[in-house]
Nucleic acid binder design. Sequence first.
DNA 1: GCCATGGCTAGTA
DNA 2: GCCATGGCTAGTA
Length: 106
Amino acid sequence: MLIRNFLKKNRVYYLTSQIPKGKVSTYGHLAKAMRKPNVTRTIGKILNINPNPVIIPCHRVVYADGEIGGYCNGINEKIKLLSTEGIIIVNRKITNFKDILFTDFK
DNA sequence: GCCATGGCTAGTA
DNA sequence: GCCATGGCTAGTA
């Protein structure tokens, strides 16, 4: 049971690490990539306890409608990180969301 | 019982 | 904006 959770968490982190700089993905798309479309909220929890927010780019995971969602170090930090990667955010929403959406998980 | 979601809908402009 | 879901976990017994 413990091993199973360990593997699941690492799968989430591995998939998240595939999102390239300048792009974003959503909790829902990560859930689909895990073949478990209903675990979206759990994905959020797992990213929240992310042991290494720099290596694992959990700031590139946002809501399905392009709103930026939460971040373990506060959403201002998330906005800052995304901005430095060239992503434009106007009152918590990504302007060209559809153009920079990454879904091609391996 | 909590929640870093998502989808649907009412109601505005 | 509202609420149905579903997986997790603290805390009880």
